[in-house]
Simulated scan of single mutants.
Amino acid sequence: MKDGDSPLSQEPRNIYGGQAVIEGVMFAGKHVNVTAVRRKNNEIMFYEVPRTSQPFLQKLKKIPLIRGIVGILESSAKGSQHLNFSMEAYAEDETQSEDAPPAKTDKPEKSGWSLSMIVGVTVAGILSFIAGKLVFTVVPAVVEELLFGQTFSNRIVHNLIEGLIKILFLLTYLYIISLTPIVKRLFQYHGAEHKVISAYEAGVPLTVANVQRFTRLHYRCGSSFIVFSVLVGVIIYSFFTWDSMWERVYIRILLLPVVLGVSYETLRFTNALRDVPVLRFLGFPGLWLQKLTTKEPNDEQVAVSIASFERMLEIDRQMGKTA
């Protein structure tokens, strides 16, 4: 090994993803999902959940269009578990008295989570995602129909205006919530997650100084998926006609799985082309949106993200040897 090389630079570059949580970051490995959160006493606490998947789901993940929907729902379910864990830790810190003993670290089994709670949170995460997508799909269609339904008859123009309304709603929503302190910090951890993944993919040692040199924007981010779902929806909806507002809404609900599946494949395609100079622009809309959904993290937030990622890699290696 050459001077300055790290163990990371000697192993294949695997593809990893993550998610920002309250005061921390979750990373999804091949065998385990790990969340690290910084407690108020400045210690880092870990929550580790082995990854399990039914053979039936694994087969579905190999089918184009279908794999995107399965992956999205699975990510929503798993992400909700880790987000709720971080919220529990945050709430405990906020209500803990000064003379209470400090929170224990590295003891995920002490978090009080039971099987029934995990199942409940999983179901709630999936339902929340579906409800959010339905609202984001239905409301812009209704608003456009009410404002411009009788103005002209060109369906493509109607779909374009509907897409613009969706983007306007999205940008307004993200801007408003980003003004709250807790969401601003969440977006900082989102930026820290992206920086760590970029540093890992570049093969540099994961130190705070090295990680901070990388951009907070990343092509594989879920924010990019949101943009693609709007653009893909405009195209797909243009192949269908409607005679009333309710028929228009009905069509969009039925086509929602198709839009999600195609959007996922589009995101994979643009990510594969991100190193082609002429085609890099395909991923730009998602990167622009990330300027709202990510903020520059401080060194402590980057340190938490590094701790989560390295813990995930360590457990992945251990579980990989025993598999």
Rank of each mutant, 00 (worst) to 15 (best):
T172G: 11
Y189N: 15
M245H: 02
K195A: 00
S223G: 03
T180K: 15
V232K: 14
S223W: 04
H194N: 00
L168V: 02
E162G: 15
G203Q: 06
L267T: 13
K166N: 05
Q188H: 15
G222R: 05
R220K: 15
Y237H: 10
G261C: 07
I177T: 01
I235V: 13
L217K: 06
Y219R: 06
V227A: 14
S223I: 10
P181Q: 06
V196H: 08
R185A: 10
A202S: 13
L164S: 13
S223E: 01
T151Y: 10
A272Q: 07
G163P: 08
F239I: 08
F187Q: 08
L273S: 01
D243C: 09
K195Q: 08
E265H: 05
V211R: 08
A272R: 14
F228Q: 14
S153E: 13
E201Y: 12
I177F: 02
F239P: 07
T207I: 00
C221V: 12
F187E: 09
S153I: 07
L217S: 05
I226M: 13
Q212T: 12
I235E: 07
S178D: 13
W246Q: 09
L273R: 03
R220A: 01
S238G: 07
V208D: 00
L206M: 02
A192F: 09
Q188K: 15
C221P: 02
T172Q: 05
F169L: 00
Y237S: 09
H190D: 01
V258S: 02
V232D: 12
G149Q: 12
L231K: 15
Q150D: 14
I161C: 04
E193V: 00
R155C: 08
V249K: 03
R216P: 00
G191W: 14
G149T: 09
V249I: 09
Y264C: 12
Y237G: 03
Q188R: 15
F228H: 13
E247R: 11
Y219I: 15
I177D: 08
S229C: 11
V262L: 08
R248Y: 05
P205N: 00
Y250E: 11
C221L: 08
E247D: 08
D243P: 03
V262D: 03
T270A: 13
L273I: 02
F269E: 05
S229P: 09
V230W: 00
S229D: 05
I182N: 14
G191D: 03
V204N: 04
Y264W: 12
L260G: 01
V157Q: 13
V208I: 07
H194K: 04
G149W: 02
A272I: 05
L186K: 10
V204H: 00
H190V: 14
A209I: 02
S178K: 06
L186S: 09
V183K: 05
F228C: 15
